[in-house]
Structure formats: structure tokens, C-alpha cells
Design a protein around this nucleic acid. Sequence first.
DNA 1: TGACGAAGTAGACAGATGTATACTTCATTT
DNA 2: AAATGAAGTATACATCTGTCTACTTCGTCA
Lengths: 219, 219
Amino acid sequence: MYLSRVSNSMKVLIGGKLKLIQAALRLTTQSRSLSSLGLRELAREAGLNPNTFYRHFKNLDEFGLQVLGYIATDMKSGVRELRRMAESSEQASHDTVTFVYRYFQSNPAATTVAVRELHGPSPLLRKALEAQLNASAQEMAEDIIERQLVSAVPPETIHEISRMTIRYILFRAMDYIEKPEQRETIQRETERFINRQFRGAMLDNLSQGDIETLVKRPS
Amino acid sequence: MYLSRVSNSMKVLIGGKLKLIQAALRLTTQSRSLSSLGLRELAREAGLNPNTFYRHFKNLDEFGLQVLGYIATDMKSGVRELRRMAESSEQASHDTVTFVYRYFQSNPAATTVAVRELHGPSPLLRKALEAQLNASAQEMAEDIIERQLVSAVPPETIHEISRMTIRYILFRAMDYIEKPEQRETIQRETERFINRQFRGAMLDNLSQGDIETLVKRPS
DNA sequence: TGACGAAGTAGACAGATGTATACTTCATTT
DNA sequence: AAATGAAGTATACATCTGTCTACTTCGTCA
């Protein structure tokens, strides 16, 4: 395999393999679904002979997995940056949301692939993506707990909300990418989503009656 | 076109057209994506000659739209039943969620198609589905407002939360269908999701400090 | 420098696909 | 009972697909 000269354990892709993966991302962004791409179609888009595909991948399933791996690596490096950014819980959601959407915006292909395949037809890809999303949620939750951003909420609940939030943001990212005029709206809605989840969770063990009297009481 | 004898304005499908649509739902449930289905594949699954397709549809795009129309009709009749079921806000979420998931469970094909195509490659289908989801959310919101289930939250917020909830439930429905052992968990998580959204929304105009003192104060 | 192996190319194959044309079946209408 | 037209079928064709076998290019290392 052609790997970068710098290091061959880091698996930095070059040559035809990279070209094929990038071709897949290009095609997917425009209109296709990853699992519906053809081998020849890929090669054509990459400017390569169809048979070159076989030099790098056994079949299309393996190819799909490698594409996921590629975007996973790509995303992880971005997500790491967003940690250590916030101070209070409200600032946290604002800054994090801003950052995450910006990131998705600058990686539209990877985002589109992720959203499509998460519910797509291939169980293999779905499973892989789900694991990756859960890992991200785990990171997010641990970060929140560690920094005691919402100490009034139990850890298990924070994990749960993190899982929901990661998915919510991923879905909205599609609209965010495609509809520039709605970006501010989407961002604000997302912040409200997160804040309401955590604030609502603070009231988890109160009855409906308790809350109504609590809210109506003038502070 | 062959329509039912009872009424031809109600567009009750019979014959090959119905067979093709049902074939699409069958194929989609198993592993495929609606927009990746082939004309011959469809005809084969339906037990018809490939050219019969052209008697009913101009092309595959139009076919996709008709499938969506079919499942839309199908779902609407189900969704109507779930109104007028709840009394308090907490009961409302419990009963509604139970009902909706049961419904999705008994219509796995339609559910799968909806989830796949909402973020799928065809802008046409996406737009159609989005409109339909928004209509459902609208209904849900109006119902909640009308019955004053959460009177402490402003109408616009109720609409927003309804939109989020409809989508959340749709995504979770995939797991609900495929992973029977997780059904109770998913249902409970969904209820918590809804309750937290509405309860959190009650605190929308309070500052973080206000809430912390509020929650910590012994009732 | 020469050999070795990986990356890329060329051509060919069987099978599947979308579509066109022409034919048959059969229910409805008059 | 005949006609009309929609639904369904048969056959054919060019095009595309995945895959096989054999060939060429070219960087790496002994």
C-alpha cells in the first residue's frame, strides 16, 4: 500500500485509495447514498481505471467501512478542539454549538455521509456509525461531568442527554449546511434544545404540581 | 387506472399499482433504500412484467412520490386515533408515546422508508416528507395548546418542541422496530425526552442562578 | 543495478438495467 | 354484442455493471 513517507503506522492515505474515497464523498454530497455507489462510478469520478478499485478494496462493503474510518479520523481531530471551551452551562452550550456547526459546515461531505448511513440500508455501516456516535456522546458527557457544568443532574442522565444531543445536532447539521439562511435559527433552536433538556432534567424527581407552583411563585 | 369500485375520488389502489408499491415497501424494509430501487427489481418482487411499471408511473421519481403518498395516507389514519387520549401532561406523554410506537411497530415498512428518505439523496422526496412531518407536528402542537396540557409554555415554544419531538420519535422508531429487547428502554427515554423539553421550557426565561436556588430550596 | 511487488491499465465476459415497440387480455360503456 | 381503452405481456436493444485475466509502470530495497 502507498502510505505517506512520514509514517506508515499513522495510515495517512495517498494515491488512488485516497482518490477513490474522496470521489465517494464528492458523489455522496451531491445526491447519492454511499451504499448505492457503484465501483465504476467511483473510478470514473476519481479518474482511475475501474480495476484499480480492487487493488485497494475487496468489495464495496469494505470500501464503505474505510470511508467511515476516514471521516471518523477526520472528525475526531476537530471534535477534540471543542473541549475546554466553556465555563458556565449556558456559555457551554452556546460556544459548543457554534463550534460544532462550523465544523460540520466545513466538512459537508463527511456530515452528509454520516447522516445518510446512520439510518441507511447497510447494517454494517449503521453499526459502525452508531458506535462512533456513542463514543462522541460519551466524551461529551464525561467532559460535562468532569467540569461540573450541571452538577444538579445525575451522571447517567447526563449520558442520556448527551446521546440525544449528539444525534439531534447531526440531523440538524444537514439543514445547517444546505440552508444558509436558516443557520442562525438552527443554532438558536439547538441551544434551546440543550438547555431545556438539562433544565428539565433538574426537575426530574419533582411532580407536575410541584413544578407549577414553583414556576408561578414570584422570585 | 384501476381504482376500487366503491369510489374513484378516494383513490383506493388496487391491481398492479398497489402491488408495485407494496413491493417497494417490502424491499425497503429488508435492506434497501427507496431511491435505489430498480424498475425491474420492483416488477420482479411484485410478480409483474417490468413494462407494467410504465402503465402506472412515468419514472422512478414519480414512483417514489406515490409511495410516500401511500404511506402518508396510511399513517394519517393512525395518527388521528391518538388524539383525545390524554388528560394531564404526564399521562399525555406516556399514552401518546405508547400508542405512536405501537403504530410504528405495526407499520415497519412505512416507518423505515420515512426515516431513510428524510435524509436521503432525493431532494424531491425529502421535501415531501418534511412537509408531512411538519404537518404532524402542527397537529400535535395545536392539540396540546387546545387542551391546555402545558399552559405555562407559550404557543410558539410548543410548536418548536412538537417539531423536535416528532423527529425524535421517528428516529427512535427504527431502533424500536429492530431491537425488541430495547423497546421499554426506548419508550421510557422518549417520555423523559418530552417531559424534560416541556419542563425545561417552563424555565426558559429564568436565569441559571434562579433555577439553581429554586431547585435546591426544600419544598 | 536489477529484481520484486504493489499500483495502475487494457480488454473482454456474462448478466442486469432502463426503455421502446408491438402484441394480448379483459372490464366498462354504449 | 361490439367497441374502446387501460392493464398487462413478449421481445429486443443499447448501455451499464461487477469481475476475471493479462499486461504495464514504477518505487523500494537488496
